[in-house]
Amino acid sequence: MISIRNISKSFNGHKVLDGVGIDIEDGEVVALIGPSGTGKSTFLRSINLLEHPDTGELEIDGKTYDLANASKDETLEIRRSTAMVFQQFNLLRNRTALQNVMEGLTVVKRLPKNQAQDRALRELRNVGLEAWADHYPQHLSGGQQQRVAIARALSMDPRLLLLDEPTSALDPERVNEVQRTIAEAAEAGNTMLLVSHEMGFVRSIASRVIFLEGGKIVEQGTPEEIFGNPHTDRLRDFLSSFERYGTNHPGADASRNASWRTQEALREEHEREDLALEAV
């Protein structure tokens, strides 16, 4: 189990996070939702100390770290047991996809090169990009880069995978492939903390959803509770801004059926498209 406790952070006197804490069970996928500027990313970045919180504790497998006063060694330890997927992918641009995934294995985990390469290729295969191993980030689409970034993060066997709006920087037609990769990582049992504005995705992947606003947890619960039966006005207001996505439709079954129909319709449409393309 991973416990994150009492994280606070102020920027220039403005309190972005005010004592936020979550417990995450192994294999759980926790999603953080909330309006922009409400501290979701700061919370994530405070956990692996890319941001230095004013207060906060992290407990991983019984070992507790004081996030506000972590030593250099503790910082490295924390970062080695968590992994981060960034909104902007942040693949090292002077390294190929394979080298990017190998980097942490050889430099941080100090695996011999051939072992690191085998592991990296396996991770790339899992995200469907083994064939792209020798490509540099600039040769890959945004979605492919993000999948390599996910492979890189998973190669480190993190206790907690942090995903900071992993699909926000993608072209709409690339969102799907990345979401599927993340869903597969979740199915594989990875413990995740996800920040996302894609409510449909959050609903389908999260085991628990946390609504953060004004630096505090306002409401939390299962996706069904949060999307189907929001208790607070603030959550209702927030969700209503996504209404056109149809994601806070009350009643999970109805929406499940609806999505099935939509998918069938999409398939048919694409089959027609394919036929049309072949005809040309």
Binding site: N176, E187, S204, S259, T262, L266, R267, D274
Partner: peptide, 25 residues
């Protein structure tokens, strides 16, 4: 148009996910 290459779905969990995702698209 990545949606067209969705693999055959047989687990309900993934099915829901894919459905939601498809709907979102």
């Amino acid at each position: 148009g990545s949606v067209r290459r969705l693999p055959a779905l047989n687990t309900p969990g993934i099915a829901t996910l894919a459905g939601t995702v498809a709907k979102e698209v």
